[in-house]
Nucleic acid binder design. Structure first.
Lengths: 209, 209
DNA sequence: GTCTATACCTCGATAGAC
DNA sequence: GTCTATCGAGGTATAGAC
């Protein structure tokens, strides 16, 4: 029984300590400086090696980018599916979407450098890298669409907004939390509760009448 | 007369046609490639001049960045304040926030290259540029906080979530629309209506009971 | 598996002709 | 007001010693 939800696409020696360190520091630097502005000398320096040594572990800067992007979105997808799959079969749509929100936030905020790097640089990377990454993004969007369509058919979702707009709005709002979430202000569980409540029921009280 | 909503801070010859063209193309390229990845040769090429000529209009790449960032946020602030100030004095808090949402979306989506460049590159620019821009961001956040505090005191806002979290959530969600809004799918007014409704009342129907 | 040294390229910015 | 030409710095990536 494999503990992992997904197979690893990497080759056999793909997860040596320094290799992982390079990815981690690259994610952190991509996040804060952008892809183009991050130099391999900086990455190497942060990882405690010299620039030339990177090329023992990776073929190019582009390959590092690809793996950083994948790590980011896979962390989110994993956390979401784990929580949704753990629900009983008779769970309501609201419970399923709540589980997805919690998973999304957990994956997002607990792998901040990878997920933030993904979100921030995706719109700015070379087209080839974007094309390679597009498929997995599409699959994750489809997963949410199925969740929301199910909620709509069960009569739990608002019928007057399209599920596409709801998905884009909600995922966008969740993604943005990585820009402002502060773990020092209250517990993660409280945070999830507040965000979930706003997503479900909005920010204003219902109008009288 | 100090309370200007829209005086021009530029110098006298600051808005020549080519100068504006440079800013426009720079915004577009910053948006899609990031700040560091955008070369002044590209900007010049897109503006129909040669790289060296840029320095007749600007002192540095950094100065271009600063003006692009300012144009982005000022477009939003202007649109928001115009709509909020146009409301009658007896408007409800809900109406005031609705006006702010519409203004934010309008400024955001009708100056897409400037606003998207602002949002995308802000986290990735040199610290000096970030410090210069921070003040106006803070002022705009304070403006929203006042709107929301007012709504809370009038008993219209949900009392169980902090106004800070609501502001961050809502502005984040609105900002993200620039990544996915498609003007070919329905009118702008319909779009505003849907988004506003989701922000106010959420995505799910109220639970029975 | 990591190092040093370096090839080759492109960057932001400047100088001076027109 | 825009051009050409160029400087010095710093980028990715490679080669070969250890």
């Amino acid at each position: 029984m494999a503990t992992k939800t997904r197979d690893k696409p990497e080759t056999v020696d793909a997860d040596s300590a320094t290799r992982e360190r390079i990815l981690l520091e690259a994610a952190r630097l991509f996040r804060h400086h952008g892809y183009a502005a991050t130099t391999l000398r900086e990455v190497a320096d942060a990882a405690g090696i010299k620039a030339g040594s990177i090329y023992y572990h990776f073929e190019s800067k582009d390959q590092i980018l690809g793996e950083v992007l994948d790590k980011g979105i896979l962390a989110v997808i994993d956390a979401v599916q784990q929580r949704v799959n753990a629900l009983p079969a008779k769970a309501t749509a609201r419970q399923r979407v709540a589980a997805a929100i919690e998973g999304h936030l957990w994956g997002l905020l607990h792998h901040g450098d990878f997920t933030s790097a993904n979100i921030r640089v995706y719109g700015q990377i070379p087209p080839a890298a974007k094309n390679r990454h597009r498929k997995i993004r599409r699959e994750y969007a489809d997963y949410w669409d199925r969740l929301l369509e199910d909620a709509l058919q069960r009569g739990e979702l608002r019928p007057d907004a399209s599920t596409a707009i709801i998905r884009l709005f909600v995922i966008g709002a969740l993604n943005w939390t990585v820009e402002w979430y502060n773990p020092q202000k209250g517990s993660f569980q409280d945070f999830v509760k507040q965000i979930t409540s706003i997503v479900f029921d909005g920010t204003f009280l219902r109008e009288p009448g």
